[in-house]
Design a protein around this nucleic acid. Structure first.
Length: 766
RNA sequence: UGAGGCGUCGUCUAACGGCAGGACCGCGGACUUUGGAUCCGCUCAUGAAGGUUCGAAUCCUUCCGCCUCAGCCA
């Protein structure tokens, strides 16, 4: 792989944080784990490039691992195509080509351990019974009657499962977690099922196979993967991933799962099922049909790995579900092809031109550079004569304004050749234009100063060759085929067209299969590596050139108006968190009493009182703070607005700061010894390392600064370090005042009165 | 509905309490023997409302919207 990706995203942040903290000894090991049951598509390319790129960037490695735990769906055909695709994209897994099936024995031993430790059991119920007992989102599940089966009995049954004593579906191994868990994935999930099927690698060695949620974390752990990156839909699986590892460890490294938003692209579909359907129903010519979003299809179309890499750089990585504009892919493809494709002449839809000023029978070989303006990069001869062909679309009898092509009486230059003028239109039976009679300007050949309205692509009428030229376009005619009832109904009928009359300049006949060219003014074309024969290339249009003329006015992609925000749903019966708190109070008189006391005696705002009287621990913490001398309302504000954010979900009891300590902290701020800004710094420090507020104030030098001289010094330092901003402020960019205030406040650790800082700054800036 | 996740230009994505930035698209201009490329410029956004703060896209609260999960698939 060439360069590692440069852009930052939430994953590079996680990795950098882990490296800095010395997690796993600073090691970065990722993996790309496809199931060999289909072809890879451009969505996988994002994942491949992400995984390989991340490891490469941080000096780690990436494994290619086939997640082949379901023998009924998988096949070696897919293993081979996937390896080829990953390699094509530049993924280098070195020694690390792995198969989940290589770990079956180890996984099995782990399962026995879970059983022995009472953490798994064999369930002999039917599939229907198990499903029924699982409950639903709002209804907890119920325990299986097999759940408390002695470990020895489960172990015996599990061994007999392995030995093949039971038919498919007779029993399963289940984890023993919690049938009442709010995450349904943790309601005693299945670990193993019986499948008497031939596996593409292990043959008939096994008849029990591990489930994804059990196998995947183990595969990662066995291989020493550190960062296991998958897509968003596996977020709720992470709890089970962690359960498996926590109960079968210890592990070093201990893998961690992270999720990103998978790629969705406009004007295409990405699901394996739909892609397979297109192939199976012969809507396309195969997995590698150039219209397919598969890597095989993209490759067949002429797209390069570099273009795909650039594309993934452009779209970035995040956790937003999003649909990427296909224009970004097209942009990346054009940008890549632009620099690597020599320009050739071809006419896709010919219109004959008779040059009456050219001697009959005379053919002149023009020397035309492969790269316009860069003859040093090579030239070839292109025959020019009396009978030529131009694009039918390049002539208009009644041209619109701004027409830069041929029209009666007008002049254009034939690329690399002469300027010609249209003198007469030749009509056929029905009056249709069948040819043009033109004259040429002999002096115009190599004279750049000789202007014409525009430049056209052309070929000689007979000294040119016909060849199969296939024009591909977007497979679907709507941006979101998945949103259509039946995606097959929105297939683009014009996604594939043959140009039957196309004529190509002679040199193109020698094009190597797999070579890329720009047909001048038309697009980028790829000599099909499969169907081309020596001296007889078959052409695939990778992508047309950007056409600002055609896109002008008429066919603008009609921009869909922003989806109107839905009106609030009528009477949502859902209980909000506030309602939950109210209910808690209703059933707990102590909390209710506190709420009224907070509300009335302490004069807290309703929202504050509500929050603080939500649960006993919070209320107690708050009361402790009051007892330590904090005035009620400020204490409530600091607790609700700042402490809650800084605690980041940790229970108050687990903080290194007690309620009393918090109360003394609030008092410090309220008595004016510490400013609110310095208070924030102080509070976060207290939360980080604990300690006494009073002591920390002196230790950190956070007492409020009353000395104007000290403030002036801080402002001066800030103006020194932020000189550029200060200059821009003086030049009129008033919005930078905030930056300067911030800089000055930081200089003095927030320990000065903000109003004073603003005032001094104002004076100093004039 | 229970749980988890996500809301920033038309699209994708930055900004981690202090200048809402970049890219694609679109529009305009320069240049051009490709209506291509290149260069320059322009339009355009923090889901809503309250609160905390000198200062909020960012912290707190409420509301709204979208996505994922109830396979013996992965």
């Amino acid at each position: 792989m060439a360069d590692a990706p440069r852009s930052q995203n939430f994953l590079t942040e996680i990795v950098e944080r882990d490296i800095a903290a010395g997690v796993n000894g600073g090691l970065v090991v990722t993996r790309f784990p496809p199931e060999p049951n289909g072809y890879l598509h451009i969505g996988h390319a994002k994942s491949i490039l992400l995984n390989f790129g991340l490891a490469r960037r941080y000096g780690g490695r990436t494994h290619l691992r086939f997640d082949d735990t379901n023998p009924t769906a998988e096949d070696v055909e897919y293993v081979e195509s996937i390896e080829a695709d990953v390699r094509w994209l530049g993924g280098d897994w070195g020694e690390h080509l792995h198969f989940a099936s290589d770990y079956f024995e180890r996984m099995y031993q782990c399962a026995e351990r879970l059983i022995r430790e009472g953490k798994a059991f064999v369930d002999s119920q039917s599939q229907e019974a198990i499903r029924e007992q699982r409950g639903s989102f709002e209804r907890p599940g119920v325990n299986s009657p097999c759940r408390d089966r002695p470990a020895a009995e489960s172990l015996d049954l599990f061994r007999r499962m392995r030995a093949g004593e039971f038919p498919d579906g007779a029993c399963v191994l289940r984890a023993r977690i919690d049938m009442g868990h709010e995450n349904v994935l943790l309601r005693d999930p299945l670990l193993y099922r019986i499948r008497h099927a031939r596996h593409h690698r292990t043959g008939d060695a096994w008849c029990i196979y591990p489930m994804y949620d059990y196998a995947h974390p183990l595969e990662d752990a066995f291989e020493g993967v550190t960062h296991s990156i998958c897509t968003l839909e596996f977020e709720s699986n992470r709890a089970l991933y962690d359960w498996v590892l926590d109960n079968l460890g210890p592990w070093d490294p201990r893998p961690r799962q992270y999720e990103f938003a998978r790629l969705a692209l406009g004007y295409t579909v990405m699901s394996k099922r739909k892609l397979l359907q297109l192939v199976a129903e012969k809507r396309v010519s195969g997995w590698d049909d150039p219209r397919m979003p598969t890597l095989a299809g993209l490759r067949r179309r002429g797209v390069t790995p570099e273009a795909l890499r650039e594309f993934t750089e452009i779209i970035g990585v995040a956790k937003n579900n999003s649909v990427v504009d296909i224009g970004k892919l097209e942009y990346a493809i054009r940008g890549d092809l632009e620099g690597r494709s020599p320009r050739a002449l071809a006419v896709l839809n010919p219109l004959p031109v008779l040059l009456e000023t050219w001697p009959a029978g005379e053919v002149r070989e023009l020397e035309v550079p492969w790269w316009p303006g860069e003859p040093g990069r090579g030239v070839r001869k292109v025959p020019f004569g009396r009978e030529l062909l131009i694009e039918r679309e390049d002539f208009s009898e009644d041209p619109p304004k701004d027409w830069k092509r041929l029209a009666p009486g007008r002049e254009v230059r034939l690329a690399g050749g002469y300027v010609i003028r249209c003198d007469e239109v030749v009509r056929g039976e029905g009056g249709a234009v069948v040819a043009l009679r033109c004259s040429h300007d002999p002096a115009s050949l190599a004279d750049p100063s000789r202007r014409a309205a525009g430049t056209l692509n052309w070929v000689h009428a007979t000294r040119s060759a016909s060849a199969p030229v296939r024009l591909y376009d977007r497979l679907f005619s709507v941006e979101q085929p998945d949103a259509a009832g039946d995606f097959l109904t929105v297939l683009n009928p014009d996604s594939f067209k043959l140009a039957p009359a196309a004529r190509l300049e002679p040199a193109l006949a020698q094009a190597e299969p797999g070579s890329r060219w720009q047909f001048l003014r038309q697009g980028y074309f790829y000599a099909d590596p499969v169907e081309s024969r020596p001296g007889a290339p078959v052409w695939n249009r990778t992508i047309p050139l950007k056409d600002t003329w055609a896109s002008r006015g008429a066919a603008h992609p009609e921009r869909e108006p922003r989806r109107p925000r839905k009106e609030p749903a009528a009477a949502a019966p859902r209980r909000s968190r506030a309602e939950l708190r109210a209910e808690a109070r209703a059933s707990d008189p102590a909390l209710a009493a506190r709420f009224s006391r907070f509300r009335e005696a302490l004069e807290l705002a309703e929202e504050e009182a509500d929050l603080l009287a939500a649960e006993p621990a919070t209320a107690a913490f708050f009361e402790e703070a009051l007892a330590a001398g904090a005035p009620p309302r400020p204490a409530a504000r600091w607790l609700a607005n700042e402490l809650a954010g800084l605690a980041g979900g940790r229970p108050l009891g687990s903080l290194p700061l007690s309620g009393a300590g918090f109360g003394r902290f609030v008092a410090l701020v309220e008595t004016g010894r510490v400013t609110p800004a310095a208070g924030k710094l102080l509070l976060s420090t207290l939360l980080e390392r604990g300690g006494e507020p009073e002591g920390l104030v002196s230790e950190l030098g956070l007492e409020k600064v009353t000395d104007r001289g000290a403030v002036e010094a801080a402002v001066a330092r800030a103006l020194e370090t932020r000189r550029a901003e200060a200059d821009r402020y003086r030049a009129g960019e008033k919005k930078l005042f905030g930056v300067l205030v911030g800089a000055a406040m930081k200089e003095i650790q927030g320990a000065a009165d903000a109003a004073l800082v603003r005032q001094v700054l104002q004076e100093r800036l004039g």
